[in-house]
Design a protein around this nucleic acid. Structure first.
Length: 854
RNA sequence: GCCCGCAUGGUGGAAUUGGUAGACACACAAGACUUAAAAUCUUGAGACCGUAUGGUCGUGCCGGUUCGAGUCCGGCUGCGGGUACCA
C-alpha cells in the first residue's frame, strides 16, 4: 500500500491554492468579515518553531472561519526596523537594508512552505519607504494635534564609544562593546503624549472581554492610576515651596523625612555649591536607566541639611534628603516618607537612623505595645499617633485629610498615573526618520506632506560608533520648509514600536496613497483575533491601543480598540545538551545508547541533558523547521505544534512527539485510502435504519463535529486534537451491518474536514480521493445533527462521605428521589452506609450522589 | 525590588469551571504478524498493600472553607514573562 508522500503532496496543493487565488481577500465581499492576525515577525534570518506555532494557531482560526462563511483577512508582513540589522552591518559589513531584505526573502520562502492561508498580496515591510513615509505623515498629524513634544530625558551613554546604548546593550553597568562603565546622560528627545489617554486606556480595558485577564491586569497596573494628595512643603531655611504627591495622606503624622530625586531641580541647584552632593548625584547616575536597576539598587541618601515644615504643625521640621529611589518621572519627584507604611521608606529610615512612628494599627494589635520591626505595615487598620485622625479607619482618614487640606487650601485631591509619556527618539540609523527640520529662526518645523517620505540615505558607514545619520556628510543638511534658510534635519529615528502600532491598519489597504483608507479600516477593525507572545502584554499592546485612539482623535478612523480578541501563546522549549567539554550541543547530533546515556554523533563526546528552556541559538536547543518539514512535511509539524500542549502554555518539542504526529497523519491517510470496510458511494447519505455499530459510529461522528467546533472556537486546539485521535480510533473500529458503508463514508469525510484547518494539504488530498471536486478550503464546515449528540442515559458516581463507591447509569432526566433510591440500593454503597446513620444525601443531577454517613 | 503567570503519573497534558483525577497522546512492557527488522494491530499500567474481590494514599509545600477542593481562600517554595532603548 502506498505511503503518504507529504513533500510532493504539499507542494502540489500549495500551487493549486496559489493559482486559484484561494486565499485572496475581498474587502468588498458581502460576507461577514473576520480579521485574524498574528504578531508579524522580525526578520531575524530564519523562521523558528515559535513562528511555526504562532502562525499555525492563526492559520487554524483563519481556515476555520473561512469554512464558516466569513470573508477572512489573514495577512503577513515584516517588523523590519531594529538593532540587529545595524549589528549585522557592524559585524559583517553588510548594509542593514540588504541584510533585512535577504532575511525577508528567506523567511517568506520558509513560511510559504508551511502552507498558511495568507493573502500574500498584502505583504509589506516596515522598512519600505512606502510604509514608513505614511508613518511620518501620521507622526505629523499627531504633532499638529498636540500629541508630540520634545523634552530632555535620560539615555545610557557609553563614554568610550560616545554613543547611546539600548538597555540590552548594557551588561552589568558596562557597555557591551567598549566595556566602559555606562553613564546616564540627558538628551533632548521626542515624546508622544500617551498620558493624555491614560484614563481612556484604563477604562477601555473593561470592554476587552476576549483578552486574557492577566494581560488586562498587567496593563491596569502599568497605567497605575492612583488618587492622592498633592501639597507643598515650605522649606524652613529658604521659605520656598516643595511640592510633593502622596497616595497615603492618612499617614502624614507618621512622616519622618522628605526625599527628592537626584535629578530634582532643587538637588541640582544645591549641588552647584556642594561638591559632596554633586558627587552623590553623579554616583546615582551610574545606576542604569531601567526601573529594575533603580529599584534593586541599595537605598542611598544624602542629607541636604535643609528642613521642611510639616503642613499640620509649623513647629515640626522634617529633614530633606536626596534619595536614589525617588523617581523624577513619577508624581512631583519629591515625597514625604512614612517609614511605618512603606518598605522603601523603612529601609531608608533604618539606614539613616530616622524616626519610625506607627500610624496604622492592625486589627488585634495593642496601640501601646505595637512596634514596626523590619517590615512596614501597608494593610488596613485604625489610626494611632495621628492627633485628630486617631481612632479613624485608615481609609476614612485618607479622605478626611484630603478634605481638610482642600478646605484649608494647602493641598488638593489629585489623580496620578504611573504611566509615562512615550519617548520615541532613537539615535540610530535603521528606523523611521522623524520628519522634522531644525531651523535657527523657525525652531522645529515638520516636513511638508508632499515631501514625504523622508528617506534614509543608502550610503552610510558603520565604521565608527554612533548614529550614521549624524555622521553622514550631506543628508541632514537641508532648507527650512518655513523660511527657506539653511537648516538641519532631525537625525533621530523612531522606536520600532511605532512601526508595529498601526501595521494592522495598513494591511486593510496596503497600496493606499494615504496611510490607509478609513472606510475600509473601519470595516475590518477591530481585529477579531490577535495572536502572539505574552512578552508583548504591556508595551506593544498598549502602544497599539494608544495609536488607535490617537488616530481616531485626529479623525483618521472611528475605531476604539484595535484588538477585540487577544490570545497569548506560550514559548516552544526543548531540552538543552552539553558535552564533556562543556559546549552546548545541537539536539540533532545527540543520540542515546541502549543504557540511556547520551553521546555526540559527530565527535563521540559524552553528552548530558540539561534543563528544558526556550529554544535559543545561544544554547543550541533549537530544531530547524526546515529540517522537520523536509523530513515529515508541514502538516505533521503543524499537527504537532497544535497537539501536545494548550496553546497558551509552553510547548516542549520532542523527537518522539513529532514522530507521533507523523504516525497520525499516515493513519488518516490509510483510513481513507484503505478503509477498514467498504464505504458508501459518493453522495449516499446514511439510511434511517442502522445497525448497532453503525449507529454508534454515526453518534461519534456528530459528537466529534460538535466537540471539535467548540474546541476550535475556544482556541483549545490540543483538545480538538485529542478528540480527533479518539474519532480516528472509532472510525477505524468495527462498523458492520445496516447502513455501515454510508456511515463510514460520513465518518471519513467528516474526519477529513475536521482535520482540514490543521493539516490542510493532507485534507485536500484525501477529499479528492473521496471523490470531491471542490477544495476543502472552499467547503463549508460540517454541521452536527443535534439529535445524534445527546445520550438518553448518564453515568453518575455515588460517593459515601466524599469517596466514590459505585457508579450507576440512569435516565438523563430521572427525578432526584429516584436517583437517590437507586444509589442507596447499591450493594457496594450499602457496605459503607451500614456502618453508621445516613445524615444527608446530596444529588446533583447528571453529576454525582454524595451520601453523608456519621 | 515591583507587576503578572505557571506547578497534575516515567513524559506532554485532560477534568463539562466546586462534583468519578489521570481522557487523548508519547515513552515503556507483553503478545500477534514477519525468515528478520521496520511498520501495523491487540493488551497492560498513578503509587503502595493484596493471589484476587478490594483497600489506603495521591494534583509543588503548609493551613483553611465545603457534604465534596486539581479547581475557592490565606501563607510559602520553585520556575517563567514584563520592568518603558531587545523585538
Amino acid at each position: 500500500m502506498s505511503r503518504y508522500n507529504a513533500k510532493a503532496t504539499e507542494a502540489k496543493w500549495q500551487k493549486i491554492w496559489r493559482e486559484a487565488n484561494t486565499f485572496k481577500t475581498d474587502s468588498k465581499s458581502d460576507k461577514p468579515k473576520y480579521y485574524v492576525l498574528e504578531m508579524f515577525p522580525y526578520p531575524s534570518g530564519r523562521i523558528h518553531m515559535g513562528h511555526v506555532r504562532n502562525y499555525t494557531l492563526g492559520d487554524v482560526v483563519a481556515r476555520f472561519r473561512r469554512a464558516n462563511g466569513f470573508e477572512v483577512l489573514h495577512p503577513m508582513g515584516w517588523d523590519a526596523f531594529g538593532m540587529p540589522a545595524e549589528n549585522a552591518a557592524m559585524e559583517r559589513k553588510v548594509h542593514p537594508a540588504d541584510w533585512t531584505y535577504d532575511n525577508i526573502a528567506n523567511m517568506r520562502d520558509q513560511l510559504k512552505q508551511v502552507g498558511f492561508a495568507i493573502d500574500w498580496d498584502r505583504e509589506f515591510a516596515t522598512c519600505d519607504a512606502e510604509y514608513y513615509g505614511k508613518e511620518q505623515q501620521i507622526f505629523i498629524d499627531f504633532f499638529n494635534a498636540g500629541l508630540v513634544y520634545r523634552k530632555e530625558s535620560w539615555v545610557n551613554w557609553d563614554p568610550v564609544d560616545n554613543t547611546v546604548l539600548a538597555n540590552e546593550q548594557v551588561i552589568d553597568g558596562k557597555g557591551w562593546r567598549s566595556g566602559a562603565t555606562v553613564e546616564r546622560r540627558k538628551l533632548s528627545q521626542w515624546f508622544l503624549k500617551i498620558t493624555d489617554f491614560a484614563e481612556d486606556l484604563l477604562g477601555g480595558l473593561k470592554t476587552l472581554e476576549r483578552w486574557p485577564d492577566k494581560v488586562r491586569l498587567m496593563q491596569e497596573n502599568w497605567i497605575g492610576r492612583s488618587e492622592g494628595l498633592k501639597f507643598s512643603f515650605k522649606i524652613a531655611e529658604t521659605g520656598e515651596d516643595l511640592p510633593v504627591y502622596t497616595t497615603r495622606p492618612d499617614t502624614l503624622f507618621g512622616a519622618s523625612f522628605c526625599a527628592i530625586a537626584p535629578d530634582h531641580p532643587l538637588a541640582a541647584r544645591l549641588a552647584e555649591d556642594n561638591a559632596e552632593l554633586k558627587s552623590f548625584a553623579e554616583e546615582c547616575r551610574k545606576t542604569g536607566t531601567t526601573e529594575e536597576a533603580i529599584e534593586k539598587a541599595e537605598k542611598k541618601g544624602f542629607n541636604t541639611g535643609l528642613h521642611v515644615r510639616h503642613p499640620l504643625d509649623k513647629d515640626w521640621l522634617l529633614p530633606v534628603y536626596v534619595a536614589n529611589f525617588v523617581l523624577m518621572d513619577y508624581g512631583t519627584g519629591a515625597i514625604f516618607a512614612c517609614p511605618a507604611g512603606d518598605q522603601r521608606d523603612l529601609d531608608f529610615a533604618r539606614k539613616y537612623d530616622l524616626p519610625v512612628i506607627p500610624v496604622v494599627l492592625p486589627d488585634g494589635e495593642d496601640a501601646a505595645s505595637y512596634k514596626i520591626a523590619d517590615e512596614a505595615y501597608t494593610g488596613p487598620g485604625k489610626m494611632i499617633n495621628s492627633r485628630f485622625l486617631d481612632g479613624m479607619d485608615a481609609v476614612d482618614a485618607k479622605a478626611a485629610l484630603i478634605d481638610k487640606a482642600e478646605a484649608e487650601g494647602w493641598g488638593e485631591r489629585t489623580v496620578n498615573y504611573r504611566l509615562r509619556d512615550w519617548g520615541v527618539s532613537r539615535q540610530r540609523y535603521w528606523g523611521t526618520p522623524i520628519p522634522f527640520v531644525h531651523c535657527d529662526d523657525c525652531g522645529v518645523v515638520p516636513v511638508p506632506s508632499e515631501e514625504l517620505p523622508v528617506k534614509l540615505p543608502e550610503d552610510v558607514s558603520f565604521d565608527k560608533p554612533g548614529n550614521p545619520l549624524e555622521h553622514h556628510p550631506t543628508w541632514k543638511h537641508t532648507k527650512c520648509p518655513s523660511c527657506g534658510k539653511k537648516a538641519v534635519r532631525e537625525t533621530d529615528t523612531m522606536d520600532t514600536f511605532v512601526d508595529s502600532s498601526w501595521y494592522f491598519m495598513r494591511f486593510c489597504t496596503p497600496d493606499e496613497e494615504a496611510p490607509f483608507d478609513s472606510d475600509v479600516v473601519n470595516d475590518w477593525l477591530p481585529v477579531k483575533q490577535y495572536i502572539g507572545g505574552v512578552e508583548h502584554a504591556i508595551l506593544h499592546l498598549l502602544y497599539a491601543r494608544f495609536f488607535t485612539r490617537a488616530l481616531k482623535h485626529v479623525g483618521r478612523t472611528n475605531v476604539d480598540e484595535p484588538f477585540e480578541g487577544l490570545f497569548t501563546q506560550g514559548m516552544v522549549t526543548h531540552a538543552t545538551y552539553k558535552d564533556s567539554d562543556d559546549e552546548w550541543v545541537f539536539p540533532e547530533v545527540v543520540r542515546a545508547r541502549d543504557d540511556g546515556s547520551l553521546y555526540r554523533t559527530d565527535n563521540g563526546l559524552e553528552v548530558s541533558e540539561g534543563r528544558i528552556e526556550k529554544m535559543s541559538k545561544s544554547k543550541k536547543n533549537v530544531v530547524d523547521p526546515d529540517d522537520i518539514i523536509d523530513q515529515y512535511g508541514a502538516d505533521t509539524a503543524r499537527w504537532f505544534v497544535l497537539s501536545d500542549s494548550p496553546p497558551e502554555r509552553d510547548l516542549l518539542w520532542t523527537e518522539a512527539g513529532i514522530e507521533g504526529a507523523w504516525r497520525f497523519a499516515q493513519r488518516v491517510f490509510r483510513l481513507v485510502n484503505n478503509p477498514p470496510a467498504p464505504i458508501g458511494t459518493f453522495g449516499a447519505a446514511p439510511p434511517e435504519a442502522l445497525s448497532k455499530t453503525a449507529e454508534a459510529l454515526r453518534k461519534a461522528t456528530h459528537k466529534t463535529i460538535e466537540g471539535v467546533t467548540a474546541d476550535i472556537e475556544n482556541l483549545h486546539f490540543n483538545k480538538a486534537v485529542a478528540r480527533l485521535y479518539e474519532f480516528a480510533n472509532a472510525a477505524g473500529g468495527k462498523c458492520t451491518g445496516d447502513g455501515a458503508p454510508e456511515v463510514l463514508r460520513e465518518a471519513l469525510e467528516t474526519l477529513v474536514l475536521l482535520v482540514g484547518p490543521m493539516m490542510p494539504h493532507l485534507a485536500e488530498e484525501l477529499w479528492k480521493k473521496l471523490g470531491h471536486k471542490e477544495l476543502v478550503a472552499n467547503t463549508p464546515w460540517p454541521k452536527a445533527i443535534k439529535a445524534l449528540t445527546v445520550d438518553d442515559t448518564v453515568k453518575m458516581a455515588v460517593q459515601v462521605n466524599g469517596k466514590v463507591r459505585d457508579t450507576i447509569e440512569v435516565a438523563k432526566d430521572m427525578p432526584k428521589e429516584e436517583v437517590e433510591k437507586i444509589a442507596l440500593a447499591s450493594d457496594s454503597v450499602k457496605k459503607f452506609t451500614d456502618e453508621g446513620t445516613i445524615r444527608k444525601v446530596i444529588v446533583v443531577p447528571g453529576r454525582i450522589v454524595n451520601i453523608v454517613v456519621g
